[in-house]
Design a binder for these strands. Structure first.
Length: 428
RNA sequence: GGAGAGGUGGCCGAGUGGUUUAAGGCGGCUGUCUUGAAAACAGUUGACCGAAAGGUCCGGGGGUUCGAAUCCCUCCCUCUCCGCCA
């Protein structure tokens, strides 16, 4: 949510920033409602001051004609106040609703562009393998090797569901444990195991609601939502809190299942496990002081990159242009790992600075060291990393001509020293 | 699921219709003392809207009343006992 005062005081700046996003936020309606709200408020508050004074007199006065007259007077005043209160509530509600639909403003250094074609490749790491006939895409490889059962996933749950089998399931567990160990031991994050079902307020806090409800799974009976990322649970961990001075930054890492309806990607990436309805992800979330968030984005990015480097997987760093920013981000940088079998750069991590956008929605503030007024924190998050795509990259980069897969050196300790994943018992 | 008790400032906690302008404590900040710190003592310290005056806020929402933290309705949450349960 944007600061209403910013919209009021620098409407042209806000308008220009939104124009870069190619969105048509109803700024004029917002300004008009804001104006209306404030003039109503002035009137009703004046009347309330009168009523407070009048009621106080009644409390002191002895019973009698004077007192009865005053009471009648105040009753009438009360009716007027009730009417105005009603109007204020209505205007407030409309204003708030509009504000919730305005996207975050892009940082000045975000490149302009209409869509992903204008994203900027910042740099590469590692040597991407040339695709060749001897490098199979993971969907063929994994099925042949008995590592993933796609058919039964579809039978049990539908398209975009699958079973990991045998050493593949073990590999995922090992990866999760290893990634979390790196982030907690080497990068100083606190591990959280979060709920994957959350209330609507939490979804509003991170910006998933009200706009993107149709991409989420929802249980109507209990009115709970399945999270699309642990970002939702972990960011809302501090919702409606006033954090103590000196406790920032707060850094959390959480593994969770993520659930996505993928309603609008029908027909895209239908093969394999690149785009699925349910997947594991290790997610990092930071709550930081506003002046630090620029630097914190880069250290977050580095934390994610460390995982790919240790796995020795070639990747590239891509900065999103204005046309490819998410609703809540001011700045977003993705890591894309090379998959030579699929011949695709896979987004395995998305690192973003939300500035105070989420903090306003979720009401997360901190008390400054100097004891001044509480301020909103800045929130950031980044995947560290998404499991299916990381496993695609491992399968496709580490496969050998006979179909076996070499275990990346850093993971062997987590797999009892195992060096190679051989063909698993067939899918029978 | 049944019965009961609760939800008050950053935290704990008093307050059952009108000088409450929410007591008191903890924590924070400032000062005295000290080489420095701790302790002790003293002072100070809620959030939100507003340029200000002022107004709003006692779990959320609604109601009763001239006036509600206080009474009523409703929802959410916590705790205790019972039942069920991985």
């Amino acid at each position: 949510m944007l600061d209403l005062r910013l919209i009021r005081e620098q409407p042209d700046m806000v308008r220009d920033a939104l124009r870069r996003l190619n969105t048509d936020a109803p700024l004029d309606d917002i300004l008009q409602l804001d104006e209306q709200r404030r003039s109503l408020l002035t009137r009703v508050e004046e009347l309330k001051a009168q009523r407070n004074a009048g009621s106080k007199e009644i409390g002191k006065a002895a019973a009698g004609q004077e007192r009865d007259k005053k009471i009648a007077e105040m009753r009438q005043l009360g009716d007027t106040i009730a009417e105005l209160d009603e109007e204020v509530r209505d205007v407030d509600e409309r204003l708030h609703k509009l504000l919730l639909e305005v996207p975050n403003l892009p940082d000045p250094d975000v490149p302009d562009g209409p869509d992903e074609s204008a994203n900027v490749i910042v740099r590469h790491w590692g040597d991407p393998k040339e695709p060749s006939d001897s490098i199979a895409p993971h969907w063929d490889l994994a099925e042949n090797q008995g590592l993933i059962d796609f058919e039964r996933g579809v039978k049990v749950s539908g398209s975009r569901f699958y079973f990991l089998r045998a050493d593949m399931a073990r590999l995922q567990r090992a990866l999760i444990t290893w990634m979390i160990d790196i982030h907690t031991r080497e990068h100083d994050y606190i591990e959280l195991t979060p709920p994957v079902l959350v209330r609507s307020e939490s979804m509003v806090g991170t910006g998933n609601l009200p706009k993107f409800g149709d991409t989420l799974y929802h249980d109507e009976e209990s009115d709970l939502w399945l999270i699309p990322t642990a970002e939702v649970s972990v960011t809302n961990y501090h919702r409606d809190e006033l954090l103590d001075a000196g406790t920032l930054p707060r850094k959390y890492v959480a593994q969770s299942l993520c659930f996505r309806r993928e309603q609008f990607s029908a027909g895209r990436d239908v093969r394999g496990i690149k785009r699925v309805h349910q997947f594991e992800k290790v997610e990092m979330v930071k709550f930081v002081e506003p002046e630090k968030s620029d630097d914190e984005l880069y250290s977050l990015l580095d934390n994610a990159e460390q995982i790919l480097r240790k796995l020795e997987l070639p990747y590239r760093v891509v900065q999103m242009c204005t046309g490819d920013l998410s609703f809540v981000s001011a700045k977003k940088i993705d890591l894309e790992v090379w998959a030579p079998g699929s011949e695709d750069w896979l987004e395995v991590s998305s690192c973003a600075n939300f500035r105070d956008f989420q903090a306003r929605r979720a009401n997360i503030r901190f008390r400054t060291e100097d004891g001044g007024r509480p301020q909103y924190v800045h929130t950031l998050n980044g995947s560290g990393l998404a499991l299916p795509r990381t496993m695609i990259a491992i399968l496709e980069n580490y496969q050998q001509p006979d179909g076996s897969i070499v275990v990346p050196a850093v993971l062997r300790g987590y797999l009892g020293g195992q060096e190679v994943i051989e063909k698993q018992p067939g899918i029978w």
